[in-house]
């Protein structure tokens, strides 16, 4: 606890922890629209198997998840639910925005009820473009995220809020 907070984390320990974190991601699938089918194909079909990257796609609740993949169009009616989902996840958490609807509104950029990109609500780490992106594209996005985690500085990520008990 003290090492991370004070910023005195040795590099080798940091590397080891990052290595173990990147190969054990629990991904919560927030599958909304068509991209959810490609995400399902990536996560559940034997052809584009995602478990070989160490990603386990079946956390029971967002409170057990490291990564959330927002796949599909986010509408203004659904936006508060997405925010609540993001706030429920414990740190360190990552967000992959999959598909052009989640990136920037996509083909519905001029609609009156679509949120033009999920990054208007929550911070996004990796954007996977496509409409829908092939399952391999999503796998590449996850690999990029893994590289990002590997190069992460844990102290910089720690927000510094003390854990208050009682």
């Amino acid at each position: 606890m003290g090492l991370v907070e004070s910023g005195r984390m040795p590099k080798s320990v940091s590397k080891l922890l990052n290595l173990s974190r990147k190969y054990s991601i629990w991904a919560y699938q927030w599958g909304l629209a068509c991209c959810a089918i490609e995400m399902g194909a990536a996560f559940a079909s034997p052809r584009y198997d995602v478990m070989r990257l160490g990603v386990i796609p079946f956390p029971a609740t967002p409170r057990q998840a490291d990564l959330v993949v927002i796949a599909g169009t986010v509408t203004d009616k659904l936006a508060p639910a997405v925010l609540r989902l993001y706030e429920q996840m414990p740190d360190p958490k990552y967000v992959i925005s999959m598909g052009s609807c989640a990136n920037c509104g996509g083909p519905y950029w001029d609609s009156y009820s679509v949120t033009k990109g999920v990054d208007q609500i929550i911070p996004v780490d990796v954007y996977v473009p496509g409409c829908p992106p092939r399952p391999e594209a999503l796998l590449e996005g996850i690999v990029l995220l893994q590289e990002r985690i590997a190069n992460e500085d844990m102290s910089a990520r720690w927000k510094g809020d003390p854990i208050v008990v009682g």
């Binding site: 909304l32 509408t75 659904l78 609609s111 009156y112 009820s113």
Partner: peptide
């Protein structure tokens, strides 16, 4: 929750 406004678009 997935209303994208097709008829207007």
């Amino acid at each position: 929750y997935m209303h994208r406004g097709y008829e207007k678009l």
